[in-house]
């Protein structure tokens, strides 16, 4: 497929307080951002369950955007730090499944940062457009051919180096 014409589908999970307002502000201020993101509002980024992200990919999404209040500003204390830890670990995990970690992105945005959020969305859409479609339903149905080793194996090699470094 020609990536110029490819319109990525991105599922966005936004926290109700800062970042949803930021998205809202971008809207009322008529800041343009691409319509590729389907927003789902959560009370807090800490509500993000990695299952949601995997479900989005399994269902055919090309990327997942998670937005939350800046560290120190979460309305539920430190739940956004939990979201950050989950997202980072999820990026490492999906990389082993051959999914580029850039397809999962966490953006902090305060209620005043409408333009900033709109820009982050535009940037993500372009990045994923460049990566191309993920098309997971087709991957999961794979019974065909390939001979290149997956990142799962590559990462085990990296890890052995790590262990050696630790010894």
């Amino acid at each position: 497929m020609n990536n110029e014409q490819f319109e990525p589908v991105i599922i966005g999970f936004t926290c109700n307080w800062c970042s949803y307002r930021a998205a809202d502000l971008a809207g009322t201020a008529r800041v343009k951002y691409p319509p590729n993101v389907r927003l789902i509002r959560l009370m807090c980024s800490g509500r993000i369950d990695p299952t949601f992200v995997l479900q989005a990919f399994a269902g055919g999404a090309d990327g997942v955007l998670i937005t939350g209040c800046h560290p120190g500003e979460c309305h539920y204390l430190e739940q956004n730090l939990k979201a950050l830890r989950r997202t980072m670990l999820l990026q490492r995990t999906v990389a082993q499944f051959g999914i580029e970690p850039e397809r999962v992105r966490l953006v902090w945005a305060s209620a005043a940062e409408g333009v900033y959020l709109a820009n982050a969305i535009t940037e993500m859409v372009e990045e994923i457009r460049a990566l191309g479609p993920l098309n997971w339903p087709q991957v999961a149905a794979l019974n065909g051919k390939s001979h290149v080793l997956t990142p799962a194996i590559a990462s085990v090699v990296v890890s052995e180096e790590l262990v050696e470094a630790a010894i």
Binding site: L54, V94, Q96, G98, W136, V139, A140, P151, S159, V163
Partner: peptide
């Protein structure tokens, strides 16, 4: 080390993603 292999040691076929992309 190896988060995916650890978390999915037994449940890979039944997981949401089912397999890795080659």
């Amino acid at each position: 080390v190896d988060p995916a292999g650890t978390f999915y040691r037994f449940s890979m076929a039944h997981s949401l993603l089912k397999r890795a992309k080659i």
